[in-house]
Design a protein around this nucleic acid. Sequence first.
RNA 1: GGGGGGAUACUCAAGCGGCCAACGAGGACAGACUGUAAAUCUGUUGACUUAUGUCUUCACAGGUUCGAAUCCUGUUCCCCCCA
Length: 430
Amino acid sequence: MTQNFVHELTWRGMIHDLMPGTEAQLQRERTAGYIGFDPTADSLHIGNLVQIMTLVHFQRCGHKPIALVGGATGMVGDPSGKSAERNLLSEEVLRHNQGCVKVQLERFLDFSPGPGQAEMVNNYDWFKEIRFLDFIRDVGKHLTVNYMMAKDSVQNRLESGLSFTEFSYQLVQGYDFYWLYKNKGCRIQMGGSDQWGNIVTGTELIRRKDGGEAFALTTPLIKKADGSKFGKTEQGNVWLDAARTSPYQFYQYWMNTSDEDAASFIRIFTDLPKEQIDNLIMEHQKAPHLRSLQQELSKQIMIRVHSRQDLEAARQASQILFGNSVTEDLSRLDENTLLAVMEGVPVVHVSHDSIVAAATVTDLLSETTKGSIFPSKGEARRMIQAGGVSINKIKVSDPQQKPGFALLHDRYLLVQKGKKNYHLIVADKG
RNA sequence: GGGGGGAUACUCAAGCGGCCAACGAGGACAGACUGUAAAUCUGUUGACUUAUGUCUUCACAGGUUCGAAUCCUGUUCCCCCCA
């Protein structure tokens, strides 16, 4: 094999657990391996990125990645890590979601014909034909309830209760593995550490039903150094879909990675070689203020998930919003560029007259803008007094100041609340 | 069914007749320092207001009182103990 996959993941800090013999199998021959994705939404989010990258590395090391979109398992619901049974989705919604997810995965994996060609499968395709009696006879027979009960995912739910549907989940997923083993020669299943139990059910099923040997590898749960959840912001998940999370916001999420996290994230979320990453980390240690790690991290991911153009736009926007730019830089931008730069910044439309009519900045930022920037005058005033508000890059210091600001292109005001929060006021005429 | 305890702002948690828009902690936001990091320090954190001013809040509905988050009555929900 071109590269040792297990070594590759090890130095990247992406291995939580693996079954004995996994490495030997992967070194021996080109191996097909799969990871399942939940089609619970019509877009993947960056919480799925670890698994996607696992497949990317898998393929780069010469193996054949299979991405399973869980149309069938999505209909059942995995109890792992869930405190309550989740709502089941209709087949129609699941189909739609699968289609969207597929498009996103195509940006990461190489689906072009070849020996290590990536493949996408949908377990609904084989499950829809299976009848209940066949399933409990051919699959259920091989595993005892005692075995299934021993899983953590089940144990954790015994107190609060779990439905038979959820309980059967591991069998359904286990059968996926078996089916892929039989029909696609798939020998290894990967996933997050919470999937270990489900994966092992699969290898067990393969062993008992067929006497075959299959393997498991799990990745650790990604946590941020400050203990907060990875991939979440105030606004919720960070999605890959530009319609859900704008490329600018997406870029900012990665740019805001703390130093501590950046060193581990760049190993996990990019496919840069070890040497280059080591250099980057050294460079970053020498000159941390350049934020080279965060720069490279966001660059790599932006290009993969969005595009070079989006990266450039996000960089330009960030440069203006966070760089040392001043009013002159802002007013130099032509209208289209300005709007492009502001892509992803919350916009509030008000009439041109009401801006003129506002008695003070405080009124402008609260009442006139209908509370979208500050919900109350008091809050606006406090923030201004604390020095946290700038308009068109000029700090506002007096809450009573008249809002005689020059509108950019006679239409726009860029309001900055603190260091990282921007709002664009658009003055509509007539 | 009997007995006891509880419900306070984003969360936890004081307060038990006026000095309470309500101690404290956490969180959040902002400022300083920096590097759009982390740590630290400072400030803000019901609304309106220039304000020592006004208004709306302490589960819900009534009541006592000059005055209630605090006392009384009823309602709802939670916890504990005994059956």
